[in-house]
Write a protein that binds this DNA or RNA. Structure first.
Lengths: 377, 377
DNA sequence: GGTAGAAATGGAAGCGCTTACGGAATTGCG
DNA sequence: CGCAATTCCGTAAGCGCTTCCATTTCTACC
């Protein structure tokens, strides 16, 4: 062992990394193992707390976990002692002893996180929410065999359950997970399974309202660029578009309905086709497409919203700093994330939960649609 | 349950105003606790494996963990049995028994993940790499008191160490972590502490090369838009810019050096100031600024690279789908991530490591700079 | 073939926590 | 004030794993 270490040191010392320029050259400073010597962080255990509080281990545990069978003053004392000792329950031990890991998995299922604004926003929100719920958040990254990855993590006790972003509901693997009784919460509805707990934003109503607004402020030919129709949210947004028309007795012109895939690129590319339909308003199923389209229209010298109104969905367009604010439906990411974690916790605790949790979004009226008049249907 | 399915079907079929709200309204359907009843997944434990293999628990453990003191044929047999039984070591137990959690923490320190392309790309890469290394990846999200959050996680055994993105080296909290002996690896150099293990891309050389290329292909006034100068990478990239000039005996004109903050918005905003300096080439410290600047220049009718060459850094500009490919220095995110995890693992294992790990980026010659001649310095 | 010495193996003690279970303290009521 | 009915509390048994240590088996060499 000793010898090995030495060898390694020699090895490491070797030709120092291309000391290209002093500024960047490797300092070759080895981390002195000595300096890393553990100070054996005097980790406070439950036993310590119990002793200090003059109660038994069991009592301390009960007190701290809010279980019954502890008189109030004892409970209080234990809490006090724990606090003053800076006690932190060891997660592994807690987990082992039959509890939960208090860690949720999160599967994004995106290979290009930096290309998927919705996914990134959701991830961020879930990460934040997990802190508030004192839950760890573990990323499940294996995108080839997500269900297996999740299963493994459940199996080895790394996570209690998993939150899955709607972006990733591709194949049957979600069903595998469910069949294996893995506590699972979806953010965004599943296209087929209706028995899966879902947290989602209301899609139809706000879409309807936005499109309605266009129709009510002078637009006569409102087009829509759909999202990926294998996704429920895309479908619902389209329905919102339809309903807005139906409510007003305006016939739906299928030539005004365009396919799409939620990508900014698509919004940009489809511009000419959209223009050919001579719309005076376009409702895009998400902000990315709206922005792509917006850029394309501006390039063609079209004035927005005078000639064409544009609206999106998601509320992630704050990425943009130029151009007018986009009218959009802002996803309440924080609420979604919180509900997702709450639901998952309930699921893990085997409490009854509702299957569908709908959160209300806020419509952000920007400058890419005409101003709201005093009257709105 | 049944009802819900039907409703959804209706919805998908077509608009029917009546269905709309009901479809999205909460169904109040309770998940039958019964249906969630656990099948008590017959979890295979080490003991099972040991028994099946006809060896002791201890031997099985040693065999599976590659420890000494097990004859080859025994080891092989144990492995075989474990495999066939589908054995997965319980992480919590492993952890408790003195091992590590095999989970790394990752602190991004960004509140707007969807605004920080570099951060998102890094996160993605680290997540992927963690799979390859069979390490869990836990997000540390508390951005108010990151050091405390990390410390807690270390303390309760949730993580073994933490990887911190350079984006987040603000205050003294990193030092707190180091003082507390928390295994820490930085991705991107720390502005002050030089004893912290760092994984970074080479900044100076490629910057120099890119700027050199501009100078060698006809540019006579190459400007640079710096990153946030509190960050080492920004400083080094600027040095690269300088070195390119020095090497060619070209005096450095401070009027050609602009401040910056790595944001796309800044690139867009600074356009006029940059133009006032009459450059025929601009090296931006990252792609985001380069893209912002690019857009601004195009808006002003400037042709690129004919009138002005532009280059960036990071290789994240693939977000863009329009316009010519940006000349840039592509960060080898995967390599960075792998090195970071490897280094952290070594650190956790108390092995000696180098302090600085530099990874070589690849320069992507795009169309925003003039084509490379056969000769390059 | 016998013996010292090395290598392999199994027993058992925990890691820090939860949770029956039975005994002790407390309460209620006659 | 006494006894049963409660409520509280402590003891101890694990959770699944690693690792120390004593024991057994093997190897090598005389």
């Amino acid at each position: 062992m000793e010898a090995l270490t030495e060898l390694r040191n020699q090895l490491v010392k070797g030709p120092s990394v291309s000391a290209e320029f002093s500024t960047e050259s490797t300092k070759s400073t080895k981390i002195k193992e000595a300096s890393i010597e553990v100070d054996a962080p005097p980790n406070v255990t439950l036993t310590d707390v119990a002793n200090a509080a003059g109660v038994s281990l069991a009592a301390a545990s009960r007190a701290l976990n809010g279980k019954e069978g502890v008189r109030d003053h004892v409970r209080k004392r234990v809490h006090l002692v724990a606090e003053s000792l800076g006690y932190r329950p060891n997660r592994a031990a807690k987990n082992l002893a039959g509890g939960n890991a208090s860690v949720m998995g999160f599967f994004l299922g995106i290979d290009n996180l930096w290309n998927n604004v919705y996914g990134a926003a959701l991830l961020q929100a879930v990460a934040n929410a997990s802190v508030a719920h004192d839950e760890g958040l573990m990323l499940v990254a294996d995108s080839r065999e997500p269900s297996k990855a999740v299963l493994n993590m459940i199996n080895d006790g790394s996570i209690d359950g998993v939150i899955i972003s709607a972006v990733a509901l591709d194949d049957s693997w979600v069903e595998e997970l469910l069949d294996a009784k893995v506590p699972t919460v979806l953010v965004g509805a599943h296209p087929r399974r209706v028995d899966v707990p879902v947290v989602d934003v209301q899609n139809l109503t706000p879409s309807k309202e936005v499109v309605g607004h266009m129709l009510d402020t002078g637009c006569e030919r409102v087009a829509t660029v759909c999202g990926n129709m294998s996704r429920v949210d895309a479908v619902r947004r389209l329905h919102g578009y339809r309903h807005a028309h139906l409510e007003r007795g305006i016939p739906i012109d299928n030539d005004l309905i365009f396919d799409g895939d939620f990508s900014r690129e698509h919004g940009w590319n489809i511009a000419d086709r959209v223009l050919a339909a001579k719309p005076d308003g376009v409702f895009c199923a998400n902000d990315q497409m709206a922005l792509g389209l917006y850029d394309a229209l501006v390039d063609r010298g079209i004035s927005i919203p005078d000639e064409i109104s544009i609206a999106g969905f998601d509320g992630t367009s704050s990425v943009e700093f130029r151009g007018p604010a986009l009218t959009t439906v802002a996803q309440p990411f924080d609420q979604l994330a919180n509900r997702a974690i709450e639901t998952l916790k309930a699921l893990v605790a085997k409490e009854a939960t509702e299957v569908e949790h709908l959160v209300e979004p806020e419509i952000v009226w920007g400058e890419t649609t005409r101003p709201r008049s005093s009257e709105m249907s």
